[in-house]
Design a protein around this nucleic acid. Sequence first.
DNA 1: TTGTATGCGTTATCAA
DNA 2: TTGATAACGCATACAA
Lengths: 335, 335
Amino acid sequence: MAITIKEIAKLAGVSKSTVSRVINDSEHVSDKAREKVQQVIKETGYVPNSLAKNLKRNQTDTIGVVLPKINTSTFSSAVEGISNVMYQNGYNLLLTNTKLNVKDEITYLNLLKEKRVRGILFFATEITDDHLEALNKIDIPVVIIGQDTSEIFDFPCVIQDDFDAAKSIVNHLIQQGHQDIAYIGVEENDVAVGQLRKLGYFEALQENDLKTFSDYIYKGDFSIESGWQGMKKIINRVERLPSAVFAVTDRLALGAIKYLKQNGYQVPEDISIVGIGNSDISPWVDPGITTINYDHEQTGEEASQILLKYINGTKREEKKVMDYQIIKRDSVAQI
Amino acid sequence: MAITIKEIAKLAGVSKSTVSRVINDSEHVSDKAREKVQQVIKETGYVPNSLAKNLKRNQTDTIGVVLPKINTSTFSSAVEGISNVMYQNGYNLLLTNTKLNVKDEITYLNLLKEKRVRGILFFATEITDDHLEALNKIDIPVVIIGQDTSEIFDFPCVIQDDFDAAKSIVNHLIQQGHQDIAYIGVEENDVAVGQLRKLGYFEALQENDLKTFSDYIYKGDFSIESGWQGMKKIINRVERLPSAVFAVTDRLALGAIKYLKQNGYQVPEDISIVGIGNSDISPWVDPGITTINYDHEQTGEEASQILLKYINGTKREEKKVMDYQIIKRDSVAQI
DNA sequence: TTGTATGCGTTATCAA
DNA sequence: TTGATAACGCATACAA
């Protein structure tokens, strides 16, 4: 059992109140008493019990983070950004990892409420009725990251413009002369990545009077392996080879490139490839991947700022759409 | 202000004690009272205040994690493993990110003490006198990850066998006929990566009566860019080209490969390259990188298990050296 | 400037 | 089976 304020008081020959005043840099403490108390604290290595402090103050300095997977650069970068901002503002991070298990999200939301966290940063993938119920009852400031929930919830959200970004990168392909563009994506329960990026792809094609074929469409998961598999499936079943491939993430693009190289195709000479996300390895692989850059760290920072405003009760932004840029590298050929 | 047990009691027409018993699945509650209380809890969305509970019980279910950088696959994978084990055992994670700032480590250690976390997982890079002082006073179970501190501290530690691993992979190069092997490493304040891996390199050379030249040695940081720079420096200053390069991480290897390809060298035909770490992208880049596999997720899990044992006061392992394997891919040629 | 007393929300002890 | 009450460690209003 750790040492308490009471014992410090006894050792220093003062009352608990005086010790408390010293700890909190309060006025009205004689230099003599202050010195004595500080000395005793140093000797004993006393550290105040923040449980008691927070109970008394009825608020904590902890921010809860709910995220689907930690070891993915998108999320870990965002957490990096979050920790930057939150630490500067005196908050700590309670991290909960749902491992892509949607049910756990509800569990964790309740856990965070139990912990009386000051606010919650919620990385959403899909939003179910259970989410609705849990979030509506939570009574804690929440900012949602990654999915546009502005029409469902009264909470602010921070999103990438997935639709526009996908459309832009596919348009870039079209501008380079590509007409037969295949698609390697993910399942559609993830609205932002699975649905919006696909819609962007279709819209770009449509606006340019281009057709797509079901042969050209592959949906898998988020793994690099899935990109490899997708490329394989497409290559093997297709009548006419696509001249370009739009992969909805850089990791998928990397897998696709690997398959092509292993099977004697040159990238971009034979087939061009683009991704989305600008993974940290994308400039370094061969060829460097042309992609959309989102600054995930900045997304985390932005979401944190919005949450802080929310907590402090000042103005409340409803929806923040993060910027993106096309990064042109060497995976696209002009034809 | 959230609703409290007192109000639940009033609404349910029972005493606080009865509500508490219902919450904690205690015996000695009539079905009628139980039902009534549960109903009120459901209606109000009441969630117990864990601050008060923990204060009363004088212990928390929180594990503190101190780590130098989140968005690095080594660390984020380890955190993934940690969250696996800790969640299963009913613990939550309080995450602190030092951003490679050693001074912050001390700050965070104190913060975690203030929070009365149940145990600490400490990812160490270097150990200073300040660390010694802080850790010796902490009075909370700590497990150190990544650096061998068994001779300095009375805390358990979980490490990779960096020396052996480096020696093995360099030996593999030698077995493939390489004699001129360059080194791309990191600064030596990081004992495990900066010192031990270099020592393993030297020892492998020495045991095989091979020489190295100062021209062959480059030390930078952990970025992919640094691998690129290192390769450039070595290529440009060397009299005789090395036939192989040992990079102390896969990311450094990736940077080195990029430089070589950009400058007309073929990997592995002209120069072979190996790394350490088996990054998730290493099988997918071109060529696939021959490397040492550490299972970081498992490292996190192992450290968590040890911490749990420590917390529960059962047997205490002093030092756990994690296993490794050589993964042979396509970045090494036989000569 | 200092100390005493009270309460934060919960659990646990004891008596009813 | 229930309820009143004390206690956890701290901050604070108030009295001295």
